[in-house]
Design a protein around this nucleic acid. Structure first.
Length: 755
DNA sequence: GTGCCTCGAGTTCC
DNA sequence: CTCGAGGCAC
């Protein structure tokens, strides 16, 4: 008889599987030991990965046999991480959504306005069904399929090349293809195949899938490609990434070219000449939906002309030239059993509905967001009623849907089934986690816990944010571990700096070392310490973002980092601007009072006078404070609210001390300005003024930014270039005064054309 | 002062 | 993914 280790996972009996899991746990543990304690590992990385993959495959086939000491539970060894991460040559973006006809006509209007096209100029769009599967990018070089990568976060995805090779719709080789070609499309499973698969799964005692999309995702992300091969996956091509030569001049043409190359393309793809035709196509596809044999969740429209697509470009996460028109969401009735309050990192109290579990759109839903106080009461931010029944109460029958097919929300309440005894929900005014007052600021829709870092919920959420992907991204230190360390008495992590003293404190702790704890071992402990060490050197923008200051997200952090360049300059500027920030807040307070009095007295508020009075009050503000403040709020995208938030965070004594302790452990990387050699305008700060005749402002801004320039709203000493169209007024004058180079639109186009 | 547009914050389920 | 709100252009 063959030894169990040579038997394919599918063919193992239960007994053989149990023995194999024991053998693999042993072999992996041994490999870990030799890898970490000796210079010469006994097995190659590839062989090690193979052991881990086989272990995971057996565990997924025989979940009951999973061992308590399973290697797949060790930190940094979750199954998804055994796929290598690969960066996309061209980002894979998601699409903006349209939910009704007006959104579609707005889309057309927005594009015309961006391109400066009159309403009656011809403008064609493609319409195609939006397949409900998972997107995949296939890279071909010299006609050979060399890489298949999942979408991931759009920047990097998982390398599933071996699995993609088993999909019949994906050609292994292309003839007469461009030298480099990235084909993008959707992996999906047909209804018939999905049902047959579930029957097989049930017979084998394995887990059945909730819907075809989950089945497709689960099948593609198998560690053992032979399992993927046995799953009936299909692929539609509809887009492309990097190409060494253009596929065509239109979207329709490019899709036809993909079909010529041997890909399946969706037969319902239609060319539309007007928004009305787009809506007709939508309606037609919707009527065919039930008979297609695969899931779709809407219709995607794209500008057909690829040259126009290039001009339209991209917003932060979506192309301007495409939109997904979603089908109406499925609805389901269920009972609201309880309302719980969660406390977020900014102290926001968020109500969550605990629901009697109900299936909506193929997924069992048991929670739904209730947003805030007003949403429960049935009002939107402007006080308008948002549903037929006024408020939502515990015990109500509620109609649930999944917004954008993901986030469960409550659409309506069945008043006829409301119990007589029910009471309106009483929103707490104390933080449920720490008991501090929960305060709702004037004009704000959110009630916030005032406890700050005293509040354990806020402290732990801030820590989770600190280690999150866009921040410090420490492998092996995710939300779960943070929660565990936060309540740990021997080796606590209560603030970011504690992360960087973890190893030293563990070494100094004679009682119980981390490696001797339950669920931890030598390997996981050293892996964690190493992962932490790797992040002691870190880019400035990540540090700023990681601090979790309100209103300072990824983009603002990036803007601040680019503007100040290094940590010392940033903190110096914040400290210098402090007096001005206080004056600004006094001015705002005075302004509120003035507005109130003005209203009572039935006169207009004296806005400028009130503001100036505060700014010019004695003692006069030091000039450097004013300069630092103006410099800060002069950054494009950064205004007074954000500046106040940033400066006050740095001047809260406890918070500042925590920030300083953190900074002492880090080597913060300076931000280098974008290279100036790529483009003549890269790294330059440009201001547009006057009427632009060849392009709209939005287009001018987007194109300048794509070339690495920074577009500012007003001229200052930092401005490198002013592009002035006819009718330029005060800005052109100021530029002359400051000696800023001024050019006209044609000169600008020549400049970027040459770049 | 008003009306877009983008970013930030919070949330669910796999 | 959505909502609210900050920032900025008009």
């Amino acid at each position: 008889m063959r030894p169990a280790e040579n038997i394919a996972v599918e063919e193992l009996t239960e007994g053989q599987a149990r023995a194999e899991l024991a053998r693999l746990a042993n072999a992996i543990a041994r490999a870990n030991r030799t890898y970490h304690t000796e210079d010469a590992p006994e097995i190659s990385d590839a062989a090690y990965d193979a052991l881990k993959r086989r272990n995971a495959a057996i565990e997924s086939r025989f979940p009951r046999l999973k061992r308590a000491d399973s290697p797949s539970d060790q930190i940094g060894a979750t199954p998804s991480e055994t796929f290598a991460k690969l960066r996309h040559a061209v980002r894979m973006l998601s699409l903006a959504n349209a939910f009704d006809d007006a959104d579609v006509t707005d889309f057309d209007a927005r594009i015309r306005s961006f391109l400066n096209l009159p309403a009656d100029a011809p403008l064609a769009y493609t319409a195609e069904p939006k397949i409900d599967g998972l997107s995949l990018s296939l890279r071909y070089e010299n006609g050979d399929l060399i890489q298949a990568v999942t979408r991931g976060d759009g920047e990097t995805g998982e390398n599933v090349t071996q699995n993609a090779r088993t999909i019949a719709d994906i050609p292994q080789r292309l003839t007469s293809a461009p030298e480099i070609l990235e084909v993008r499309g959707e992996v999906y499973m047909s209804h018939a195949d999905f049902e047959a698969l579930n029957v097989r799964q049930a017979e084998a005692g394995a887990k059945t899938f909730a819907n075809p999309r989950n089945a497709a995702a689960g099948s593609l992300r198998q560690l053992d490609a032979t399992i993927t091969a046995a799953r009936p996956l299909k692929f539609f091509a509809y887009a492309w990434g990097e190409t060494s030569e253009p596929l065509a001049t239109t979207q329709m043409g490019a899709v036809a070219r993909l079909a010529d190359l041997g890909f399946s393309t969706n037969p319902l793809t239609t060319l539309c000449n007007t928004p009305d035709e787009m809506l007709e196509t939508y309606a037609r596809i919707e009527t065919q939906r039930a008979d297609l044999g695969y899931d779709i969740d809407g219709v995607v429209y794209k500008v057909d002309d690829l040259a126009l697509q290039a001009r339209l470009g991209f917003r932060a996460t979506t192309p301007r030239w495409a939109i997904a028109h979603k089908f109406p969401a499925e609805l389901a009735w269920t009972r609201l059993e309880k309302i719980e309050i969660q406390v977020g990192r900014t102290g926001a109290l968020s109500p969550v509905a605990r629901l009697h579990p109900v299936t909506v759109g193929g997924v069992v839903v048991s929670n739904a967001t209730l947003h805030n106080e007003d949403y429960i009461a049935g009002r939107d931010s402007k006080g308008a009623e948002i549903r037929d029944a006024k408020d939502i109460r515990i015990g109500d029958w509620v109609q649930v849907y999944r917004a954008g097919d993901v986030i469960p929300k409550i659409a309506n309440v069945d008043l006829s089934r409301r119990p007589d005894s029910s009471q309106p929900y009483d929103f707490p005014t104390k933080c449920p986690e720490c008991g501090s007052d929960a305060i709702r600021e004037e004009g704000d829709s959110v009630r916030r816990c005032s406890g700050g870092l005293i509040c354990p919920a806020q402290a732990v959420e801030k820590l989770k944010h600190f280690v999150s992907r866009a921040a410090f991204d420490i492998e092996g230190l995710g939300a779960k571990q943070v929660e565990m360390f936060f309540v740990d008495d021997l080796l606590p992590i209560r603030e970011p700096a504690d992360i960087f003293t973890l190893e030293a404190r563990d070494a100094a702790n004679p009682l119980q070392k981390l490696k001797n704890r339950d669920g931890w071992g030598e390997t996981s402990a050293t892996n964690l310490f190493r992962a932490i060490d790797e992040k002691r050197q870190i880019p400035l923008n990540r540090v700023i973002f990681a601090l979790g200051i309100r209103h300072v997200g990824e983009v603002a952090a990036q803007d601040l980092a680019r503007h100040y360049g290094n940590w010392a300059a940033l903190t110096a500027a914040i400290d210098a601007a402090r007096p001005a920030e206080q004056r600004h807040e006094q001015a705002e307070t005075a302004l509120r009072a003035e507005r109130q009095t003005a209203q009572n007295e039935g006169r207009r508020a004296r806005i400028t006078e009130t503001r100036n009075a505060v700014w010019e009050a004695d003692p006069p503000l030091p000039q450097p404070a004013i300069e630092a403040w103006n410099d800060l709020i002069g950054i494009d995208g950064i205004g007074a609210t954000l500046a106040v938030s940033l400066i006050s965070a740095f001047h809260q004594p406890a918070e500042r001390a925590s920030i300083d302790r953190l900074a002492a452990h880090l080597r913060i990387e300076e931000v280098s300005r974008p290279a100036t050699d790529g483009s003549l305008v890269a790294g330059k700060t440009v201001v547009f003024t006057g009427t632009l005749e060849k392009m709209t402002r939005a287009e001018a801004k987007a194109r300048a930014e794509a070339l690495g320039a920074k577009v500012a709203g007003s001229v200052s000493a930092k401005t490198d270039l002013l592009v002035a169209g006819p009718g330029a007024g005060s800005k052109a004058k100021k530029a002359t005064e400051l000696g800023v180079e001024t050019i006209d639109e044609d000169a600008w186009l020549a400049l970027i054309g040459a770049a």
